[in-house]
Amino acid sequence: MVSNADKPRYRTRKGNYYLCDNGYANTEGFLGPYKGVCYHLKEWGPMASRPQNAMELFNLHHSKARIVIERAFGIMKMRWGILRSSTFYPVKTQIRLIMSCFILNNFIWSEMPDDPIERKLDSVTENDQTELEIDAAFIDDIESSPQWNAERDALAQTMWLNYMNNT
C-alpha cells in the first residue's frame, strides 16, 4: 500500500484533471473511467446499443477523449524522435524540448494541411492501437478518493441528464 506521503503530486489548474486509464486510481487530479463498465470504443461499435446509464455514457465520452489525446501524443512521437524514449536532461530542459516540439508541430500543421504523419497514423490497424494501451495494475495500490469519485459521479450525472434531454 502506498501512503499519502509517497503519492506523486501532479499539479493541475483548479477544475482541470488528467484523463487516465483503469490502471490509475480516481484520485486528486486524475479522472479515470468506471471499472467494470463498457469502455473501449470497439465495444460501442455501430451495432452496439446506446448507453443505458450515466456510468456507460461517462465511459463512452471518456474513451473518445482519451483516443484524441493518445492520437496527439502518437503524432508527436512519430514526428519527433526525442520524445520516443526516456531522457536524462534536466526537467527544465525536458519541458523546453516538449514545448519546442509542440510549437514546431503547430507550425507544420498551419503550413501543411495534408500531414503525412497523420496519414501514416490513420493506417495503423485497430489491433496495433489496442497494443498501445497500458495495463498498469501495479498502480491500483493507491486507493480511489471518495471526493474524486463524487466528482466523477456528478459529472456523469450531468452528462446523463443532458443526454436524456437531447434524445
Score class of each variant (00 low, 15 high):
residue 37 V to H: 00
residue 39 Y to Q: 03
residue 121 L to I: 15
residue 5 A to T: 06
residue 135 D to V: 06
residue 149 N to E: 01
residue 91 V to A: 14
residue 38 C to G: 09
residue 123 S to P: 10
residue 62 H to T: 08
residue 112 M to C: 12
residue 125 T to E: 14
residue 70 E to Q: 09
residue 21 D to C: 07
residue 93 T to D: 12
residue 84 R to Q: 09
residue 51 P to Q: 10
residue 20 C to S: 13
residue 110 S to M: 04
residue 141 D to E: 06
residue 80 W to K: 02
residue 1 M to H: 07
residue 134 I to K: 12
residue 101 C to I: 01
residue 70 E to V: 06
residue 26 N to P: 07
residue 60 L to Q: 07
residue 109 W to M: 11
residue 10 Y to M: 14
residue 65 A to W: 04
residue 40 H to M: 13
residue 159 M to S: 08
residue 144 S to D: 11
residue 5 A to F: 05
residue 115 D to M: 03
residue 131 E to W: 08
residue 163 Y to S: 14
residue 94 Q to D: 04
residue 145 S to L: 03
residue 20 C to F: 04
residue 1 M to A: 09
residue 100 S to G: 10
residue 51 P to F: 07
residue 89 Y to D: 14
residue 10 Y to S: 11
residue 107 F to V: 10
residue 39 Y to T: 03
residue 164 M to N: 12
residue 126 E to H: 15
residue 153 D to G: 00
residue 22 N to W: 00
residue 97 L to N: 07
residue 54 A to S: 14
residue 151 E to Y: 02
residue 116 P to K: 06
residue 34 Y to G: 02
residue 4 N to T: 08
residue 8 P to H: 08
residue 1 M to S: 10
residue 130 T to L: 14
residue 106 N to P: 02
residue 104 L to T: 06
residue 76 M to D: 01
residue 151 E to M: 03
residue 44 W to H: 08
residue 60 L to P: 02
residue 86 S to H: 11
residue 87 T to L: 11
residue 92 K to I: 11
residue 18 Y to L: 15
